Amino acid sequence: MDKTVPSGAAMLLAFIGGIEAPHGFDTVYGNNQAKLAKPLTSMTIDEVIAAGPRWTRSFGSSAAGFLQFMRATLLRLKKKLRLSGKELLDGPMQMALGHELLKERGFDEFMAGSKSRTAFGLGLAQEWASFPVLTPTVKGAGKAARTLKRGQSYYAGDGLNKALVAPERVEAMLDKLKAPAAAPAPVLDVAAVTAPDKATVERVQQQLKDLGYTEVGGVDGKVGTMTATAIRAFRADNGLPAGDGIDDDMLLALQKARPRTIAPERANAAPEVVRDKVPEVKANWLSKVGGYIVGIPAAAGALLKGSLDNIPVARDYIDPLTSIASDVPGWVWLAGIAGIAGALVLVSRHGEAKGVEAFQTGARR
């Protein structure tokens, strides 16, 4: 089977997969891939087909892979393409099968201009439940007929599926496929980028975290300061126009990107270097130094107090320190201060070490 996928089809499939399965080619329905004995991309087509009924019982659906192939779809494509079933359902195979699905839904006709954007969009919605219909659509006939609103999933109402992408974004992607190639702009025109919906932002945030852009912060569906910082870093690392907007080029790049690498100078950064870059590391270091400044004299005083109590001259110097609580021996107070200072040193040292480690490994940027 020829696994060559034209660039336009590959771009559309990457867009579809980013909506259907943002965690990639090993995804199974409900993001239950961690429960599999081995990664999906290490399984053969026959193994995935055989596991389908079990996944449906356990996870709620047999949908698998970057494009969420249903068991029935794999069975049909296996027969149509005359596959043996021993082929791995790896990334290239998933993209090749996805290309076949696009062709079945009229991709070639759409690109040639003989099928409208709305009609092709309906085909995509019929194939991938997370995609919306682009115009009000009547589904079914007779008494069973129902009208779907623009933006609804073709399978809305089944209790399992809903549209996860706005119709405007689908239309923009389809228009982009047919637009003539243009020289890339040096800077992203953020104003021209359609504001992403919350679900899209959440997927982007999770993908950035998975790739090592931990400065993204939490996955909350909001493009705040931390998320914007992570987006700018990702765009710079992947040769995209500068900016903090989420556009289709970035969504495509997220699907192809490899985990962020840590530069040697960062991985081996000395603590004093990290202190200048990470505020909390410096704060822990200052607390540690303060603990030493207070703790060492207090500990020394505690050791000396008992032995010096009977020396009149020494007593005259030390007694003012303990006169507030005359019932408690002075060495006890000093020992307490030393203990608190020692605890502060230990906690601060631990925090400083963890901060340095987080910076070196990229967990803190």
Rank of each mutant, 00 (worst) to 15 (best):
K305H: 07
L67E: 10
N284Q: 08
A10E: 07
L303F: 07
A358Q: 10
Y29F: 13
A21H: 04
N310W: 00
P136E: 06
T135M: 01
P241K: 03
Q94H: 10
A199V: 13
I19S: 02
H350R: 05
F120P: 14
E215R: 02
A10C: 02
Y213N: 06
W55R: 12
L321G: 12
R275I: 12
A72N: 10
G245K: 04
A300T: 14
G24I: 14
Y155C: 04
K143R: 07
G142H: 03
G17M: 02
I337P: 08
Q206F: 05
G113I: 15
N32T: 15
P167D: 06
S62L: 10
S348V: 14
D175G: 07
G243L: 05
M111H: 09
M93K: 07
A181E: 12
R54H: 13
L124I: 15
Y29K: 02
T261N: 00
S62R: 08
V278Y: 00
L97F: 13
G355H: 04
L67P: 10
A163E: 06
S114H: 13
E202A: 06
P264I: 05
R169T: 14
I246T: 11
V273E: 05
V5P: 06
M111I: 15
V313L: 03
T56L: 10
L83A: 13
L174H: 03
P279A: 09
L344C: 13
E215M: 07
T322E: 04
E20W: 01
V201F: 04
I340T: 15
Q68E: 10
F110G: 14
V48A: 12
D248I: 14
G301L: 10
G106L: 10
G8F: 02
K178I: 14
P271M: 00
A14C: 01
P180V: 11
D247E: 04
V328K: 03
N310S: 03
E265R: 00
F110T: 15
S307T: 11
T227Y: 02
A10P: 02
L97M: 11
S348K: 00
L122K: 08
I231A: 02
S348P: 14
R150D: 12
M11G: 11
A63S: 11
A270R: 01
M173V: 14
A195S: 11
G140K: 01
